[in-house]
Design a protein around this nucleic acid. Sequence first.
RNA 1: GCCCCGAUGGCGGAAUUGGUAGACGCGCUGGAUUCAAAAUCCAGUUCUUUCGGGAGUGUGGGUUCGAUUCCCACUCGGGGUACCA
Length: 1068
Amino acid sequence: MEYNFREIEANWQKYWADNQTFKATNNSKKPKFYVLDMFPYPSGAGLHVGHPLGYIASDIYARYKRHKGFNVLHPQGYDSFGLPAEQYAIQTGQHPAITTEANIATYRTQLDKIGFSFDWSREVRTSDPNYYKWTQWIFIQLFNSWYNKTSDKAEDISTLISIFESKGNANVKAASDDAIAIFTAADWKKYSEEEKQTILLKYRLTFLSETEVNWCPALGTVLANDEIVNGVSERGGHTVVRKKMMQWSMRITAYAQRLLDGMAKIDWPQPLKDSQTYWIGRSEGAMVTFKVMPNAISENRAIKLSFKEIEELKVKRLNPSEATALLWGKLRKKKGTSKFRANYTVGNFEVDFVCFSKNTIVEFAGKKDENARGQFFEKEGFNVVYTTLEEVLENVDSVVSKIDTAIQFATPKKVENSENVTVEDLGYQIEVFTTRPDTIFGVSFMTLAPEHELVSKITTPAQKAAVEAYIKATAKRSELERMADVKTISGVFTGAYALHPFTGEKVQIWIGDYVLAGYGTGAVMAVPCGDERDYAFANHFGIEIINIFEGVDISEEAFTDKENSVIANSDFLNGLPYKKAMKTVIEEIEKRGFGYGKINYRLRDAVFSRQRYWGEPFPVYYKNGLPQMIDKAHLPIVLPEVEKYLPTEDGKPPLGNANTWAWDSSKNEVVSTNLIDNVSIFQLELNTMPGWAGSSQYFNRYMDPENTEEMFSKEAINYWQDVDLYIGGSEHATGHLLYSRFWQKFMFDRGFVPTDEYAKKLINQGMITGTSAFVYRVEGENKFVSKGLMNDFKVQPIHSDVAFVNGSDELDVEAFKNWREEFKDAEFALEDGKYIVGREVEKMSKSKYNVVNPDQICEEYGADSLRLFEMFLGPLEQSKPWKTSGISGVYSFLKKLWKLYIVNDVFAVSEEEPTNEEYKTLHKTIKKVEEDIANFSFNTSVSTFMIAVNELTALKCNKRKILEPLAIIMEPYAPHIAEELWKNLGHTTSISIVDFPEFKPEYLVESSKVYPVSFNGKMRFTIELGLDLTVKEIENIVMAHERTQEQLQGRTPKKVIIVPGKIINIVG
RNA sequence: GCCCCGAUGGCGGAAUUGGUAGACGCGCUGGAUUCAAAAUCCAGUUCUUUCGGGAGUGUGGGUUCGAUUCCCACUCGGGGUACCA
């Protein structure tokens, strides 16, 4: 009776499928256990041996837990939306759904051959409308929510509306867009529905905003930071540029602190937690406001805007509302001193129209603004004309005449400064965020990002040309150039000064591209003595460097060791160490009112729109430019058919090609785009969702995947709760694994899920790399020399397919010759009659001809061998190279195991009582394997099995009481052979849920120990002694031993250390 | 630059709280079986040696009776991230 793995494995795979052996029920008396794998993206290349590594580990764990009496949920599915299928569609015209379906079929066949205990009845696919219905539903929930910082959780938008209705927004603490105008309850009630919606959009957890995005022209889409590698796209390696676009964003920043805090209660790998912590980038510090000194600018105030502002305002100007367009049509004709500008900024505020030479602002506010905005304009001496959109639409000419009257009487405001020069004080202020407010007395200059909105306003005439040239030069530099060249120090003085808030001294204001517009406020207070970049900048431009550290020499470099700093030369901070100084200075800043303590996060809100076809469509249509959610009852909004998968000619996303992509709001259905009338039929959103949308809650959908009424029932989520073990790659550290935590917290806040962390334990499996094979071609000849001879020639290494190479690195020359036409007639220089290849460990890839498929291995050695070998390779979390030749070890182990159950070529076990020695082997194996599974140390379990089988073979053990439990403990690792043995042992049901054998320590009790005897820590010989001996007795025996005397050569030992049961060490 | 992980025979790796370094397997060497091959089985396999031993876990130092394991400094390799104020 041979071990016929092909037959055995095919039979049991069929049995499991036919009997739904691994189907999990949503109610059981057993305790639950949820084992999850990161579901794969079904690529066209299929699986290579690296992919199943994590699945095998999780499968072992799941199978083990079934033996231990748990109701195990172990599902699998496909993350089936994504770029490759779409790229393929663009090239071939094949619908991505078709190629995806085919790829999934291949994956399924490959996975089935490995014998996983997945509950396939729960399969999900992110591209299935029945699945993405719920992705759309979550999107709507996010849209209908805001983050209340007071209750520190997401709440329904209705709670925000009721606050607005009763108190306005002045006291609302929310995660929201910056600079939302303050309004009262009365204001709110007067706002039109459109205005209300516009305001609410600034608070919603998913919101539309004009964001600077990573635009990849070659792919025609926006990419997230984690989709960009070294400045180019991860897929395809195309150039990426910055571009402004109207995009959906997710307010993940609202959860920054909770995402940090949550890590304390989850058992995830520390490096992964570290990288999330770094990505979130919490820094504690303070916001400090510096006043800009009044300048001697006498030019007109119609200062050119920075390019950032121009970009922003351009969009507004290009898409004016009807009323704005109408009024602008009139005002734009005014020239000279009556010249107006539309959508301009004054101070920190944006106004609808402004005429600087006449100090006149026109606002669509209806009435005078009593808040900061109105007060600022008043202080600045602006004359504000208030009008409304309705008024303009009704009678534009009367509004124009009102404005004419206003500018007739207006005069520019003049103020006196200390130097008695007539200047304009525009009340500009620069806000900075700093993590070192304790060093504020060391500030000797400030630097603004070139894109900072104040740059254009504060620059003096003398510096104007230089500043503009610098801004232009910076704008031209690509991200790549800026990244490649961080050492060059560049910047320009604006000519303006700020006032130091404590000392009142003049501080130069510079611009420099080392300050990033996108982080903090886009401005820094520069402390050269305490910051390397500030130091380099000051040094380069000859700016003063003030030393405010006690006993530190800063003549060569900045002193950045904050923990060991003591402040000096700083008024009330003198003598204080870092922490105390921080606390003191923040208190003082707050007391004096020019700043406050603040925690800043590096984490940005996540852009959620992709200009792609193959992704989830948004359940959104647009009415008067405002997004409207489609009711849950009408979901899913199914991805429309398009003729071309490329962006449209006018630059719209691929969905712009769809003919049937409009929403009929009365019939509640998707209709032809020709019918759009903006009355009841509207344009649907053209963007699709990013790759991480579908993967952010899939683990919860597995709990109740067939549910058509809810994403999952309350009963299901309350039963399964969360994932007990999650296995997948660490490459998702700052992508999927962060976004899914964010969504889970949101779902928790809104009461949909019972826990705010969805995975208690996470393991990152390491990568399996390939072992590439190289042949060496003599340059200019069609001749290959064996590895040992290559030094005698000038050779060029060429990848050979690893299939042609055996375990001894010997090349099958004939197979290689037949591989490609050009090698047919090649000459081969051998050594000892063999051609030896060179070997190198590289990532598995088609182009390196080092890919090994699991199917090949299953065909040749069987799934059980593959499973054992993948585990045997090394620690799960470590990356390790694959070498097929090694598999013969586990293969012959399985054959040996099989033979234990065979007597005279027939299946037979003896009912005889096992010997103590046989029991000892069994129980030490049980003990070790259970410990190994608990530690995810699957590689050592495989060794343990080998040792057990070797020992039992040596003992010629054929006893049921040993071999039956052995089959059970083998089952998680090698389920097919275990099932077959179990059946042959006379059982009629699957082995998969029988109880795991109980470990009995009494079989491992020893009466003696082979002690190592060391001299000065070096082991010299061993001696077997009874474990019941006392320390004194041991010492007497050892000291009397002839080998001891030999080692000591007459010396008396200084000390004898005896650890009973462990070692004996003689020092002397 | 910063953060993280790693380094043990020809190779993958083992040594769970500091206690016999190299388990288990591959490969290799020799042998048995065979007409031969495959398969299987047996023995050997860290280096070195004058066969008594001696050295040895990336390098240098430290703590300890004892260090692959703990501490300090460094070298090399892999991964992540990047002018974050």
